[in-house]
């Protein structure tokens, strides 16, 4: 089979002793686009960060594998090297490091010493990708995310995605704060990645993104786990009716996690 497989099995995650994820099961194969939706504070970003290895999140139970390799045993950089990518909901700003130096270091980190990408090739690739994402060329020489507008940060995450070409990407609210034109551009970038060798987990609150990027599967998260899965029509129903019907169906009163009443 082409592409990679990310398997998440019964994942429990705690932050500062408090359980936030309460047993997530999800498998993403190369070629598949999954959308994860759910009300605020239900654990979506926690899932994304825990998979990538954020130091604050403690895995209390469960397993994560990429192509059969134990992800939870890996350092953050090893997870990236294994094919994972996380477009963050709130990307860090790093002063003094230019976007282009950062990107080049990221690309070279995946290559053997002595086999670094040539400057010419790098610039060509970056220029081309920035054109496609309709980014201003001077963004390459600006310090990483520093002073970037919300929308610029999101585009910049997609720029990285496209240049690093991971096997499995997790996009955490890549659409939040985007105007309609930016949404189209970002979607274009993500769609361009679509092939059998690329799997994607898209966290979003809005159907609007899914109008441009059609997911194969849609999952709903509440109380720190996936409570419902379906096809694209599920997203449409959430857009039309909200989450109450699911809560009723499942008898959930408070959908958030971790809050002590």
């Amino acid at each position: 089979m082409a592409g990679s497989t990310l398997e998440i099995k019964n994942l429990h995650v705690a932050i500062e002793g408090e359980e936030i994820l309460t047993g997530v099961n999800l498998t993403i194969n190369g070629g598949e686009f999954h959308a994860v939706m759910g009300p605020n504070g239900t654990g979506k970003s926690t899932l994304a960060s825990a998979i990538m290895g954020h130091p604050k999140y403690e895995i209390t139970e469960g397993e994560v594998y990429i192509d059969g390799k134990d992800v939870l045993e890996m350092e953050v950089d090893e997870r990236a090297q294994a094919g994972l990518f996380l477009a963050m909901q709130y990307p860090s700003e790093i002063s003094g490091v230019t976007n282009s130096d950062f990107l080049r270091s990221s690309i070279n980190a995946r290559r053997e010493e002595g086999d670094e990408i040539s400057l010419m090739k790098f610039i060509k690739e970056m220029d081309g990708t920035m054109d496609l994402l309709e980014m201003d060329k001077n963004m390459a020489q600006r310090y990483l995310n520093e002073g970037f507008s919300g929308g610029e940060k999101k585009r910049n995450e997609i720029l990285q995605l496209m240049m690093l070409k991971p096997a499995i990407a997790i996009l955490d609210e890549i659409d939040s704060g985007l105007d309609i034109d930016a949404l189209k551009v970002v979607s274009k970038g993500i769609n361009q990645m679509r092939d059998d060798n690329f799997g994607c987990l898209i966290i979003t609150h809005y159907q609007r993104l899914l109008n441009y990027i059609t997911p194969d599967k849609v999952h709903v998260m509440m109380k720190g786990r996936i409570v419902k899965s379906g096809g694209p029509e599920l997203a449409q129903r959430l857009e039309d009716e909200g989450y109450d019907w699911i809560k009723q169906e499942l008898g959930i009163e408070d959908e958030t996690v971790g809050q002590k009443a």
Partner: peptide
């Protein structure tokens, strides 16, 4: 910041 950079494949 380190998490962000390392999530792109860079060593610590």
């Amino acid at each position: 910041q380190l998490f962000y950079l390392m999530s792109r494949g860079m060593s610590q």
